[in-house]
Write a protein that binds this DNA or RNA. Structure first.
Length: 650
RNA sequence: GCCCGAGUAGCUCAGACGGCCAGAGCAGGCGCCUUGUAAGCGUCAGGUCGUGGGUUCGAUUCCCACCUCGGGCUCCA
């Protein structure tokens, strides 16, 4: 009997009988692996466990359910089960696409008579899905020609459109398509691979219904989408659901109300926030830090208005390229004004206000500039996606040979700032020229290369996002990971060759000739509001002392300690610390509890012993037990140091 | 913009086959209590039940429209 040689990921080889499948390889390695296997990679291509291996031998890697690829596959398979359930419960429904997504999957349907799903339908559908899982239906792959595919899905217009869209000349399959059949009950057009049987699924939950457009195009049919999450085990599912719950508890919109930080008055309009005094204190601490650092970094502070005439935005190119992101215009005295969507045009005018010499460069203009952008109502999301927000915006004008060192020091500045705010995990994205762009492609290449060099010299890990750049410049977006592992885009850095010629900006070089400056746009927080929102979620509202609106609350044990409490609070305030005190007309425990619910870093307690000894009891947030008899001076020094060093915990 | 869901006190929520003064906890005011580390007691106040129409003898409840908020709107079979 002939054999074939398979090479495993560790480099080892084994002989298998000819005609063996990937599943056989898994079984030959061990029972545990066979049980965990959901699919395999053969010579780098994902295939079903049941697919026969090529007779000439191959490399085989088993994909297990608890790997990213394995979860992807079982989510995809679960989406098929969802489609089967819906087609059975809504006879005549058309089904469109059902891919795996991060943490789960979805499937889009067109229900008969234009019906739509309601939340109550999820239970019914889920119950039917569990029956399908219980039926242990195999996933069986079928290879079809294009015409067979068109015939098989003759009554499914979305599937027909997908098959028609498959390029007949593309790929090894050469115009063929594949389908997966679950017994006689259900068949779906699908490239696969899939788990061997529905019995391999089960740790899933349908989460929500939504509308979605066919192919994401609002001019096409609106479909009904069902989202679900699926995992390799009930334990993993439970962990995910717990994580979702934790994220809900950290939601900055919820904490914003609970901690009295900000709100979005409907009287003002969607996406436009007001900051309350406590939120204002946090924001002020952020902005103070930012200003101090910029001052130290050689930036000069400028201020510009919120409106400008349309001609400015014609010069900058915004009206031509960015009009859909701008607020509508207003007319006054025969001119048309727009709220500014970006600060750059105004900064260009400041540069142009006088002749510049190479000796003036680099010129770094900084502004906490509030901009307004039109965002469709459906995409607004608290402070994270607002219509009015403030950028810690800067434009750096430099000579070509200063570009590299400016970019390198900027990246270092970004990382330092993010670390100060408690973020440790960074990843950058280098976004290159989009389809819709201005300027000379050769200059785009120079700018992109300069950004790449900066990333490499700063040793920041990055990925390239092709075509994701702004219309006027390539950029580096710096992403952070928060306390519960979510990724957020924060800072951005762009190299721009367009604005200088548009505004006819020049500097006189050492050669006494006129030259174009290079311009770097950058924002470290990005949007102060958005950064604030992410900070709330990252810290779950428990801000480190340097940012906390109230750093320490002083409580007397009884109300005859009120004078001492007030004196201690006054002492802290005199030291420049943010402290308050609450009179003792409620039991101490109750007052402690309120302070804890407000997530204050420190609660100080003064009683008879403390009055006598000049000490306080220190109840630190997160500590196991309170400390007694701490001299006031010691506490002041400790909090002072914590604030001055921007200590992350406290 | 479009699909789904939700709007009852400052916050979190209950309630009603259409019918009597619409309830609770927290927060707030006042009083009592005099408290050593996460909820002391009492009392008072607080709501045009999102807005506007319709059905009805009667609507916060049923119907329609609108407003606001939340989730979603290619991660391409």
């Amino acid at each position: 009997m002939s054999t074939l040689t398979v090479t495993l990921p560790d480099g080892s080889t084994r002989e298998m009988p000819a005609g063996s499948t990937a599943g056989d390889v898994a079984a030959s390695i061990g029972r545990g692996l066979a049980k965990a296997a959901v699919a395999a990679e053969v010579n780098g291509a994902e295939v079903d466990l049941s697919s026969p291996l090529p007779p000439e031998g191959c490399e085989v890697a088993i994909i297990t359910a608890n790997s990213p690829k394995g979860r992807h596959i079982l989510r995809h398979s679960t989406a098929h089960v969802l489609a089967q359930a819906v087609l059975q419960l809504w006879p005549g429904a058309k089904f469109a696409i059902g891919p795996p997504i991060e943490n789960g999957f979805y499937y889009d349907f067109d229900l008969p008579g234009g019906a739509s799903f309601s939340d109550d339908d999820l239970d019914r559908i889920e119950a039917r899905m569990r029956e399908i899982v219980g039926e242990d239906q195999p996933f069986e792959r079928e290879e079809l020609t294009r015409d067979e595919g068109l015939a098989m899905f003759a009554d499914q217009p979305y599937k027909i459109e997908i098959i028609a869209g498959v390029d007949p000349d593309e790929g090894a399959a050469g115009g063929s398509v594949s389908a997966y059949r679950n017994t006689g009950r259900f068949v779906d057009l699908c490239r696969g691979p899939h788990v061997p049987s529905t019995s391999r699924l089960g740790s899933f939950k349908l989460t929500r219904v939504a509308g979605a457009y066919w192919r994401g195009d609002e001019h096409k049919a609106q479909l009904q989408r069902i989202y679900g999450t699926a995992w390799e085990s009930d334990k993993a599912l439970a962990e995910h659901l717990k994580q979702v719950e934790e994220a809900e508890k950290r939601d900055h919109r919820r904490l914003g109300v609970e901690l009295d930080l900000f709100h979005f008055p409907s009287e003002i309009g969607g996406g436009l926030a007001v900051f309350h005094p406590k939120g204002g204190l946090i924001r002020k601490a952020m902005e103070d830090y930012s200003r101090t650092e910029h001052e130290a970094g050689g930036y000069e502070f400028v201020y510009t208005p919120h409106l400008a005439k349309s001609t400015l935005f014609e010069t900058s190119g915004h009206l031509q390229w960015y009009a859909e992101g701008m607020y509508p215009p207003m007319e006054m005295e025969g001119a048309t004004y727009y709220p500014k969507p970006m600060n750059c045009p105004m900064h260009m005018l400041i540069y142009r206000s006088q002749q510049r010499s190479y000796r003036d460069l680099p010129l770094r203009l900084f502004e906490l500039g509030t901009v307004y952008r039109f965002e469709r109502s459906g995409v607004l999301h608290g402070l994270l996606r607002a219509r009015g927000f403030t950028q810690d915006d800067s434009h750096i004008f430099c000579t070509p040979d200063q570009l590299e060192s400016e970019l390198a020091s900027l990246l270092a500045f970004v990382i330092r700032l993010l670390r100060t705010f408690g973020f440790e995990d960074f990843e950058a994205e280098l976004a290159t020229r989009p389809e819709k762009y201005v300027g000379d492609p050769a200059e785009w290449d120079i700018a992109t290369e300069a950004l790449r060099l900066a990333l490499e010299s700063a040793e920041v890990p990055y990925v390239v996002a092709e075509g994701e750049g702004a219309f006027y410049a390539p950029k580096i977006d710096v992403h952070i990971r928060d306390a519960i592992g979510r990724r957020w885009q924060m800072s951005t850095l762009q190299v721009d060759f367009q604005l200088a010629p548009r505004f006819d900006l020049e500097f006189t070089g050492a050669d006494n000739a006129r030259h174009r400056p290079y311009i770097i746009h950058r924002a470290l927080f990005g949007s102060v509001e958005r950064f604030f929102g992410v900070l709330v979620e990252h810290h779950a509202g428990a801000f480190p002392a340097w940012l906390a609106p109230v750093q320490a609350r002083v409580l007397g044990v009884r109300n005859d300690h009120d004078d001492t409490a007030a004196a201690v609070a006054a002492r802290l305030k005199a030291e420049g610390l943010r402290a308050d005190w609450v009179q003792g007309d409620e039991p101490l425990g109750a007052r402690i509890r309120r302070a804890k619910l407000d997530k204050l870093p420190y609660v100080l307690v003064v009683g008879d012993d403390d009055v006598a000894a000049g000490t306080v009891g220190v109840n630190a947030r997160g500590a196991d037990r309170p400390e007694r008899g701490v001299p006031v001076d010691d506490f002041v020094a400790r909090l002072r140091a914590e604030v001055d060093t921007h200590a992350a915990v406290g």
